[in-house]
Design a protein around this nucleic acid. Sequence first.
DNA 1: CGCGTAATTGAAAAGTATCAACACTGGTGG
DNA 2: CCACCAGTGTTGATACTTTTCAATTACGCG
Lengths: 190, 190
Amino acid sequence: MIRTHSELLAYIESLVLKRPDFFVTELISPKEKIIQQNKRYSYLYIIKSGIVKCYLSDENGKDFIQEFLSTGMEFGELEVFSEKPSFCCVESITKLEVFKISYTDFNKLLDTDTNFSRLILKAMAKKISYKAPRHSYQQSYPIEDNILKLQELYPGIDKIISKKDIASYMGVTMRSLNRALNTLKHKPVK
Amino acid sequence: MIRTHSELLAYIESLVLKRPDFFVTELISPKEKIIQQNKRYSYLYIIKSGIVKCYLSDENGKDFIQEFLSTGMEFGELEVFSEKPSFCCVESITKLEVFKISYTDFNKLLDTDTNFSRLILKAMAKKISYKAPRHSYQQSYPIEDNILKLQELYPGIDKIISKKDIASYMGVTMRSLNRALNTLKHKPVK
DNA sequence: CGCGTAATTGAAAAGTATCAACACTGGTGG
DNA sequence: CCACCAGTGTTGATACTTTTCAATTACGCG
């Protein structure tokens, strides 16, 4: 649920030393919108520490959280390739430390540094293989099953992420989430 | 819904001429399982012509279709990066013409051919930006809305894809799909 | 013709959303 | 210090949507 990629972070940190002109370090406070849907940007980000949520919001005001990203995860990179405006929002949950790099410099790195290019490919492959089973499971199983799975994989997640966000992540209303939690409490059958 | 990537196909075809030793052309008949979940492979595929479905099937036997792929789309490439067994099944719907390339040769190309590497990055970015809004929309809106959207984007899709598959793609039962179709027919309000 | 797969439909059961009321919390300002 | 407010979380009643199950029809093909 909260995704990380330590290998990428390590490599980025080594790059920052080699090419300090490419990267800007930034501190961001909680609840800040870093990327807004349908806007154009020219920078992408790699998280050094902290957690962001990455979500799509539709015209009805319903938000749907794609993933929670943490150390070593990049965001805003897809637009480099698609050349379209951002298709999702990114907002900090905790306070954040990020590396920022311009599309231009990112492209330079891709073209000249095979290791880097490889890591980005890997990062994107990870994003895809993560999304697919989640999407599938969420559609195929009732809420209770999804909660159980979440608790199993990420015990104590509710202390970090608000319930509202957990509900948005699961694609259900908070009412349904609460009911499911209650019935699980009262019949911890297995 | 049926995804294509002509730019990649064009480039692959030019590569086939330059490096005929890297590629094998194969003909595949309909309803063949090309890739099976949780198995390991050493080849990946690029579609020259025809349509495949790419789906996850869970222990309950429910299938969930990720995407329909056609000309220029690659599959089986994620496992090159993740180094894990395949996480989804791929099955031909129509008869198929594909290029096959081994992980080894694919890696060689990635390391030596910047244009190629770039196209693969782009292909993966496309896969991600396609999945996210779809997932979001499907969770947030009722079936009828999803049908309308589908009919708008791909009129006549029902002639190519079986209803069963359309239902699996939308993540609902066929019963629900049929009911939604009927109510749409009887009240074509707008 | 007969077989298997795909598609259709009804009725009951399960799951989820909507709406609305209310509790809890941590600021903020009087 | 208290009152107030906004954001977050909780809960009940009800309506709606979707699944499940099962029975039936339609279609393509040997």
